[in-house]
Write a protein that binds this DNA or RNA. Structure first.
Length: 287
DNA sequence: CGCATATCCTGACTGC
DNA sequence: TGCAGTCAGGATATGC
């Protein structure tokens, strides 16, 4: 029947949804207190140092690079950087709301309430970093251009995917955040289906026309997913800042649909492993 | 150097 | 119904 595991992890559209929610309420709010109870969530720097760096600061604009959230502090050269990884959530609460299990960091925002970081698998993380002249955190310089950045033209995508690669699969290249930032397992599968390209095709056999197609379909899909506030399955691994699920899962063409007919040709959708990831594809449509 | 693999972790699911 | 075992996955470290 359908593949066993169906979970939507936060990728670009989900992180962008969180960013937009935060951008409506966070700017201008001052952090009166920070409590880090989960040591693993703050691991790039000392917990006490982290609390010192954030306490008393006022949040400015909220931006995103790939799957990283960047919350500027005091409009200065520093920012709070957040990555949700597998199961992280940034939630907005009244201070009196019950504290959910796996809440690892709590930011008190004066009379406004709290911003809380909840993360069962503890893969997610937060850290304070300095920003360069372009507003890029210093520890994120290795990231490729954001998947929705206009500067990621077909020519640039083609060059970055094929550069130096021999046998690596196309999907693995798209998942490499150094190539482009923001694409994860779900949207890689959806974009490659729409572009009619096999995930296992060697990246070296990725033509300029292929790059144009992938770029177009990826942008279309990511934008539609953002409009639907992201993808969630029954397990609600992804929810927004108020705990609400996203609506894009009903539009998935192949992801989580193994054993069901391809929406384009009716062939049974397969689930295989590519780049050590559960991968969904139509063996007829995708070459 | 390119690429594969192990690692971190919890909860959902499988099978008895 | 309960419980032990398996599996999922983003980024990174390590090994070939």
């Amino acid at each position: 029947m359908t593949s066993r595991a169906r979970r939507a992890l936060p990728e670009l559209p989900e992180v962008e949804t969180v960013r937009r929610d935060l951008a409506e309420v966070i700017p201008g709010r001052t952090v009166t207190k920070v409590t880090v109870s989960g040591a693993r969530s703050v691991r790039r720097q000392d917990r006490v140092e982290f609390e010192r760096l954030v306490t008393g600061r006022r949040f400015g604009q909220v931006s995103r690079h790939g799957k990283f959230l960047v919350l500027s502090l005091d409009d200065g050269p520093e920012a709070l950087v957040v990555h949700l990884r597998m199961s992280g959530q940034v939630r907005l609460h009244r201070s009196s709301d019950e504290v959910a299990k796996h809440t690892h960091v709590v930011f008190d925002l004066g009379g406004f309430g709290q911003m809380r970081f909840v993360d069962p698998r503890t893969f997610g993380e937060l850290f304070v970093d300095t920003l360069d002249d372009d507003g890029r955190p210093s520890q994120l310089v290795h990231l490729g251009p954001d998947a929705l950045d206009d500067r990621l033209t077909a020519a640039v995508l083609h060059r970055r995917v094929t550069a130096g690669r021999r046998s690596l699969g196309l999907k693995a290249a798209l998942l490499d955040q150094r190539v482009l930032a923001g694409v994860g397992n779900l949207y890689a599968d959806e974009a490659l289906f729409a572009a009619r390209l096999r995930p296992s095709r060697p990246a070296a056999a990725f033509s300029r026309d292929d790059a144009g197609l992938v770029r177009r379909e990826l942008r279309r899909i990511l934008r539609a997913a953002i409009a639907a506030r992201g993808s969630s399955f029954a397990d609600a691994a992804y929810v927004d800042t108020r705990g609400v699920t996203g609506g894009y899962a009903t539009r998935h063409q192949v992801y989580g649909r193994a054993g069901q007919p391809c929406p384009a040709c009716g062939t049974t959708i397969l689930r295989i492993v590519v780049a050590a990831r559960g991968t969904h594809l139509c063996p007829s449509c995708q070459t």
